[in-house]
Write a protein that binds this DNA or RNA. Structure first.
Length: 929
RNA sequence: GCCGACUUAGCUCAGUGGUAGAGCACUCGCUUCACACGCGAUAGGCCACAAGUUCGAAUCUUGUAGUCGGCACCA
């Protein structure tokens, strides 16, 4: 078999995915065991407009590792895939395209034609992200692919809306909301980001108090008014002067002595013809600013509340694009809010009513998507009342402490605290792309909320109804994802992305684990929990893995503005998908980490290492086959009865493999992906390649079929262990192994499919863990390493063969005797002399081994005595440092008295060992003089 | 302002009461018949700082400093 010297990931990546998918390996039905336990994960649906980024790549890898692992363990596994309709971004994208290609606006073509355009766009371009998901190798079930806007999921959305409305958990109300003037829609609190304004200012405006108005002459107002009371004016401070056009009061604290006499008086509001009252409200803090606050109830949340308390007029002075409307007055109508600000200031200046302007640190709400400054605006919207919803989630948290967050700190607390302070959720959006709100209005403005138009007609007793023009927040439909995708409210047939299976909901809900990013805990996780509890009566998942953020190499968050993003597809192309997956899974769960190409590169090298180890095994595999494994205890017994005695390396590697398998399973059970990656890397590279293959090399190249078969058997199991992390490489290599037969396959899978992904995942067999073999191998490794050290330090040419003299107890001698050939090969020696005492020439390099053994390598003519002295001296010094520490600890009476006996004994043994080694080295050193 | 996390080898990060670890980089050697995306051998850290608990602290507690994040913000 011709196998290239270097691994080419792109080949393997092309070879297998299509076959896996078309063979139905990803679908739960592949598991025909009627008793198989289900395991399910739903993908956090990426935006239909989105493209893959590192965050996706990370979370997708973790989910796929879990899924493939569970599938190999025999679970009936569903990894459900799909995308969401991403209301605003999709609408904006299609609008842009419409303008560019057809020079048309959505308004001009109308709602129906526009949504048709969006569907067209979705069908054409919306599969970009799904193509990328295939590229990642995700074992998601494409036959069940979902889309939030498809009919079945939309039916679920309507059902939830109607039921919540009927129970009074959804209401329509007029509130101050977050208005994005660019996107022209309302946003929920979570879609708004507070950010520092670049040059925030605090403007001090003087408002003339009505009683003194007659004395004021606008033209002469530049001169300070003389005499009279000091309260001719009341000065208010504001960061948004333009809103003064909508002021309907000025408020002061009732206890504020400065203003007490003004309460109840009125103000002639400059630039308007309006007269507004001065009111007293506890909300005002006398210490801040001037202690007097302008009140704009239609443009500020706090002001709105004051307005409610004092029954103030709520004057909306802006249009939906944040230009001033007619209520702002003729001079301002049509101006943008920031132009209006400038003009207001100019006018105040002219009137002599601008007291001062101060620099001021102000944080402003920005639209998370388009970065526009949010305008708080009085508006009628639909809301979900959160108090009872929230209690569902909080009770679950208290009673069962679910969901379990991984890592638990800090997410459990953050999540709970957020729930406790939750405010109502604005769910209507002024868009056309999304689930249109199932509410209809009659001519009188009465509302009829219904599942269908027909139901609404029936309720209203008339067909003269208009449906609410708004759609629902995309997160409203995402909140239902874990059950809407599994078929809640679904009906067979109809327009759907994937197939509907009547039993899925029962089988796969609740899902087992959710993997997602921190930023989405509130937006999505909490809402899934609430709706899941409300509508399914059960939590949507037990565990939530919150993965870390992938930062750039300088530890900065990746962002479009900084243009420091790393495209996973580039990384795939350069290093391979599997290497990328390893690098991602190899980061600690939940911890942010700076992306370094060097790290992926090391896993690319790892791929190549495994490739070549397999290549070597195959190059010498004439007649050898993978044996059915792991062998049963009966087979082991039979083998020993046959007089087949496994060699030390064979016993050792088997022990290492089974220990590793156990540890990998343990790590995955607690979502310690990086731990598993570490274990696999170490096993393959250090144990399997550096030691096992090297120790077996002679046997294999000599054509020992037994030996080759053993290597192949170990390799086959190790590949399975690695498969969830590196699916392409492992499949590619596994396919090449000789003797892969049906009996290797997982018993759960009735079909004898030729794929590693349906083989049994090794869980580790205790009976094959062999501590004696591990300790014997440790001695062999120590011996070889010490000799190699001597070679390196003494600059022995690699071609020069040495003799090794070993002195030690019978036990250790017999270990070395049994493995003489291998030791000779790896230490490059042509002779090993075993004895109880060393009898060697003075010109020898010396070293000590654990367990009272020592070695000497005669180097007549090659030894540099000075160097050897330094070498020994260095080793003695190292031992002495440790000895000192041990002595210190053991001479501490408190330690000896209070520490556990075991611990004390351990240190005493260690001390004896070190003293011994140090003494031996000391004698060696003296002998050199 | 409130809450939280982090600070360990040059870099990126594991570890979490009992001898400090990995990968990469560095140094030295190697055309050793799977792999130079390699092999072999080294070197490198008072685990941010200070105090406390303990026989024993990188690990627990408290404080300080720096970095980052979340939440809330008074016009």
């Amino acid at each position: 078999m011709e196998i290239p010297k270097a691994y080419d990931p792109s080949q393997a990546e092309e070879n297998h995915y299509a076959r896996w998918e078309s063979s139905g390996f990803f679908a739960p039905e592949i598991n025909e065991d009627p008793n198989a336990e289900p395991f399910s994960i739903v993908i956090p649906p990426p935006n239909v407009t989105g493209t893959l980024h590192m965050g996706h790549a990370l979370q997708h890898t973790l989910m796929d590792v879990l899924t493939r692992w569970k599938r190999m363990l025999g679970y009936r596994t569903l990894f459900l895939v799909g995308v969401d309709h991403a209301g605003i971004s999709t609408q904006l994208m299609v609008t842009r395209q419409l303008k560019k290609e057809e020079h048309n606006n959505p308004k001009d073509i109308g709602r129906e034609a526009f949504t048709a355009k969006v569907w067209e766009w979705k069908n054409k371009y919306g599969c970009e992200i799904t193509r990328q998901i295939r590229r990642e190798g995700l074992s998601v079930d494409w036959t069940r692919e979902r889309f939030t806007m498809e009919e079945n999921l939309s039916r679920a959305v309507r059902e939830v809306f109607v039921r919540l409305y009927e129970e009074g958990w959804i209401y329509r109300g007029t509130r101050i909301v977050n208005w994005c003037p660019k996107d022209k829609t309302v946003l929920s609190d979570l879609e708004v980001k507070e950010e520092k304004a670049k040059d925030g200012k605090l403007y001090y405006l003087k408002y003339p108090v009505k009683s003194f108005e007659s004395r004021l002459q606008p033209a002469s107002a530049a001169a300070p008014p003389e005499g009279g009371t000091q309260n001719k004016f009341i000065t208010v401070a504001t960061t948004r002067p333009e809103t003064m056009l909508g002021d309907t009061a000025v408020a002061v604290n009732p206890e504020d002595e400065r203003y007490k006499d003004l309460i109840g008086k009125t103000i002639a509001l400059p630039l308007t013809n309006r007269e507004i009252p001065i009111i007293a409200d506890e909300y005002v803090e006398s210490e801040f600013g001037t202690g007097a606050v302008k009140i704009t109830p239609a443009h500020d949340a706090n002001d709105w509340e004051i307005g409610e308390r004092h029954d103030l007029e709520k004057l909306v002075i802006m249009n939906d694009d944040a230009t001033m409307n007619s209520a702002a007055g003729k001079d301002f109508e049509g101006l943008d809010r920031f132009e209006a600000r400038t003009k207001v200031i100019e006018e105040f200046e002219k009137l002599g009513l601008l007291e001062k302007i101060e620099d001021y640190d102000v944080t402003l709400p920005h639209c998370e998507r388009c970065k526009t400054v949010i305008e708080p605006l009085l508006s009628e919207q639909w809301f979900v009342k959160m108090d009872e919803m929230r209690d569902l989630a909080l009770n679950l948290m208290r009673e069962e402490a679910l969901p379990h967050f991984f890592p638990e700190v800090p997410h459990k607390k953050v999540y709970t605290t957020w729930l406790e302070n939750l405010r109502d959720w604005t769910i209507s959006r002024q868009l056309w792309w999304g689930h249109q709100i199932p509410a209809w209005y009659d001519a009188d403005g009465n509302v009829y909320v219904a599942r269908t138009k027909e139901e609404a007609f029936e309720q209203a007793g008339t067909q003269d109804l208009t449906q609410d023009q708004d759609v629902l927040d995309t997160w409203f439909s995402s909140a239902l994802w874990p059950f809407s995708t599994l078929g809640w409210m679904s009906e067979p047939g109809g327009v759907a992305t994937g197939e509907f299976h009547a039993s899925d909901l029962e089988t796969f809900y609740p899902t087992n684990v959710l993997v997602t990013g921190r930023d989405i805990i509130f937006l999505w996780v909490s809402r899934m929990v609430m709706t899941g509890l409300k509508f399914m009566g059960e939590k949507p998942f037990d565990d939530v893995i919150i993965h870390g953020t992938v930062l750039d190499k300088n530890g900065q968050r990746m962002s479009k503005t900084k243009n420091n993003g790393i495209d996973p597809l580039d990384v795939f192309a350069k290093y391979g998908v599997d290497a990328t997956r390893m690098a991602l899974a190899g980061s600690a769960t939940g911890v942010d980490f700076a992306w370094r190409d060097e790290r992926v590169e090391s896993f690319r090298n790892f791929s190549n290492k495994i490739w070549n180890a397999t290549r070597f095994a195959l190059m010498n595999s004439e007649g050898a086959t993978v044996q059915n494994s792991p062998p049963s205890e009966g087979e082991v017994a039979a083998a020993s009865a046959d007089g087949v005695v496994l060699s030390l390396p064979d016993r050792w590697i088997s022990s290492r493999l089974n220990k590793t398998a156990k540890a990998v399973n343990r790590a995955l059970e607690t979502y310690q992906f990086h731990e598993a990656v570490q274990l696999l890397y170490h096993f393959f590279w250090d144990d399997f390649c550096d030691w096992y293959i090297e120790l077996k090399k002679d046997e294999i190249t000599a054509g020992d079929i037994e030996s080759s078969s053993r290597i192949l058997t170990i390799l086959e199991q190790a590949l399975r262990l690695l498969h969830p992390f590196m699916p392409f490489l492992t499949e590619e290599l596994w396919q090449k192994l000789p003797g892969i037969s049906n009996q290797l396959h997982n018993q759960a899978y009735g079909k004898a499919e030729q794929t590693i992904m349906l083989t049994t995942f090794p869980t580790g067999d205790d009976s094959l863990i062999d501590e004696a073999a591990e300790s014997e191998m440790a001695s062999v490794i120590e011996l070889i390493t010490k000799v190699r050290n001597i070679r390196a330090e003494m600059n022995i040419k690699s071609g020069d063969r040495l003799a090794i003299h070993v002195a030690g107890l019978k036990e250790i001698q017999s270990i070395f005797a049994a493995n003489e050939a291998q030791i000779k090969k790896l230490a490059r020696a042509d002779n090993i002399v075993l004895a109880e005492k060393l009898e060697v020439p003075k010109a020898s390099a010396r070293a000590v081994l654990t367990g009272n053994a020592e070695i000497a390598v005669p180097l007549e003519g090659l030894i540099d005595f000075e160097k050897e002295r330094e070498r020994l001296q260095g080793q003695i010094e190292k031992l002495d440092v440790e000895l000192q520490r041990l002595n210190g600890q053991l001479s501490n009476k408190n330690f000896v008295d209070k520490a556990p006996e075991e611990k004390v004994k351990e240190l005493r043994d260690r001390k004896a060992e070190i003293e011994n080694q140090s003494a031996t080295l000391g004698l060696n050193l003296e002998a050199l003089n």
